[in-house]
Simulated assay, not measured.
Amino acid sequence: MNIQIEWLYKTKNGAQAVFTSQQLPAAQALMLVDDIMQTGRAKNIVLTDAYDSTWTLKELKKYVQEIASEPQNVTIYFDGGFQRDTRQAGLGYVVYFEQDGKAYRIRKNAFVDGLLSNNEAEYAALHLSIRELEELNVHHTTVSFKGDSQVVIQQMAGEWPVYEKELAEWADKIDKRLAKLGITPVYEHVARKQNEEADRLATQALNGIEIDGKKELT
């Protein structure tokens, strides 16, 4: 969950102004609020989530304590590779997240056949990554999805229409899974170089190399 902070700041000579932060992860917002309050010059602090619901400082502290053991700050890179002559595809994704004060990375891939295009392989990779979120029990939070397929990113973001039936079906399944988990997706198109980890996983799947690993990051 992200929180926006609004507060009234008053100087020693009586001048005052209202400041508003960007949306911040709840734990980060809580740390900033504590720091702002230590100045002794902040008044009327208002905490608002992405759904325009307001929180008291006590409620936010309780929430942060409750979610401390749940995955947070989740970012997913996904990619799909497709061989047109065999209609075989390799799917790959990388999940970065934090949990219990530690950072982790999950790398997985899968081999599938019977798909119709590279775009469908990209959708299938995105869908597979969301199944990983279910396994991790990620829910009611914002997740960043990054891929090098401009078609998939723009279509899932609602910027481009989806005309192909098979792609529309994938998009619907993805939206339904995310809604069920209470996840707010943020889609970002990245260059292939920035997505090379997921791209490599997709290629390895096509070559019959299965990857399924989790690593704690320092």
Rank of each mutant, 00 (worst) to 15 (best):
L8V: 10
K176D: 07
K146F: 07
K62V: 11
S149C: 05
E166M: 09
A42M: 09
H139C: 09
I45M: 14
N119I: 05
D79N: 08
Y187S: 11
A42Q: 12
T11I: 08
G92M: 02
G182C: 11
E216P: 08
D100F: 09
S69Y: 08
I45F: 13
A168C: 01
A171V: 04
D175M: 05
V18I: 15
E196Y: 14
T75L: 13
W160E: 02
A191Q: 13
R192A: 07
G147T: 02
A198P: 04
A68T: 00
L126C: 15
V138I: 06
V33D: 12
I211C: 07
N137R: 15
L32R: 14
A15H: 06
T39W: 15
A121K: 05
E66C: 03
I106S: 03
Y96V: 02
G182E: 07
S53T: 04
G213T: 12
L60S: 05
V95N: 02
G147K: 03
E70Y: 05
T86F: 00
N13V: 09
D34L: 08
F97N: 00
P71R: 00
I211G: 01
V112W: 02
Y104K: 00
R192E: 10
A68L: 01
A205P: 04
I211K: 04
N207L: 04
D199E: 06
N2R: 15
K176Y: 07
G182H: 11
A26G: 01
T75W: 04
A27E: 13
D49K: 12
A26W: 02
F78M: 07
